[in-house]
């Protein structure tokens, strides 16, 4: 199938600004789904609130656009009820790790078979450029007129510590790499987290002198390096990309089937 076969063209044009990285990430995701040949009826996209969350409306899958930060617990209800479905949850940085932070770590702890994508543009775009828990210190934002003093989370380290069994990072610049990683994440049995660095030229780039979308994409390229690469060895300050964790640990829905087996036996 072609990419447009996965889109609800009735609902276009989309609401993303010119230069936004989210469209590129959507493209990477759809190519992964296409290459995996997943049936449209077997795929659920659940999202919260924010620019990234609007993905769910644009794609021709089962789509559940929920509340700010609440995509993962809603997705948990869907997945546990219908374990055969592929459940993908695209989230923004604020959605996933501020208001939804508790749900994020607990979904990871349970290792429920959901693919969480953190589309990290380091800003609240939809509300007009407030700093997020992934902005880090020294950033200009409408709620940080004197620059931020808040430290940021490291999404990868947080996901690993919380128990996610697949953890990876890529960027909107590395679209093909993102597709490869997303394919593995979707196929992985367990909670998988893929952080994809995105760019918000409108609310982050302009205020932080990072220029337009093209120069922000260059920034993704220059400031990241693959795990195990010489570039990263030479300059450990670069942000590492690639798959950090890919382990086979007991998955929640499969474990619950064992509970049902035990409980229904006891009942008889």
């Amino acid at each position: 199938m072609a990419i447009q076969d996965y889109l609800r063209q009735r609902y276009f044009p989309h609401m993303w600004c010119p230069g936004c990285g989210h469209g590129t990430i959507l493209n990477s995701l759809l190519r992964a789904i296409e290459e995996l040949e997943i049936e449209k009826n077997d795929l659920v996209i659940t999202s919260g609130i924010g620019c990234s969350a609007r993905i769910s409306g644009y794609v021709d899958f089962h789509s559940l656009h929920t509340m700010h930060g609440r995509a993962l617990p809603c997705a948990t209800g869907v997945k546990l009820s219908r374990p055969h479905l592929n459940v993908i949850v695209p989230m923004g940085d604020g959605d996933a790790l501020a208001i939804g932070g508790n749900h994020f770590i607990h979904a990871a702890r349970r290792n429920i078979d959901i693919t969480a994508i953190v589309m990290n543009n380091r800003i609240y775009g939809m509300t007009g450029g407030q700093f997020s828990p992934l902005s880090g210190p020294g950033v200009n934002a409408t709620t940080a007129p004197y620059k931020t003093i808040d430290n940021s989370f490291d999404t990868v380290k947080l996901a690993i510590a919380a128990g996610a069994s697949f953890v990876a990072r890529s960027t909107a610049y590395h679209a093909q790499e993102s597709t490869d990683i997303l394919k593995k994440a979707i196929q992985h049995k367990g909670f998988s987290v893929v952080e994809i660095l995105s760019q918000c030229p409108t609310h982050y780039g302009r205020k932080n002198k990072e220029g337009d979308a093209a120069s922000m994409l260059e920034f993704h390229k220059k400031n990241t390096a693959r795990i195990g690469s010489k570039a990263l060895e030479k300059n450990p300050d670069l942000t590492p990309r690639g798959i950090f964790v890919d382990v086979d640990t007991p998955e929640y829905c499969a474990e619950y089937e064992k509970i049902i087996a035990v409980a229904s036996k006891e009942k008889m």
Binding site: M67, R70, T76, G77, S81, I260, E266
Partner: peptide, 28 residues
């Protein structure tokens, strides 16, 4: 689970409400 149903203890009250919404939507 004795009758094949699903029970989950969530991380908080909000998540519990969200989970039953997701489950109900699928027909449960």
């Amino acid at each position: 689970p004795e009758r094949g149903g699903k029970f989950i203890q969530m991380e908080d009250e909000i998540a519990s409400m969200c989970a039953i919404i997701g489950a109900s939507l699928t027909g449960r």
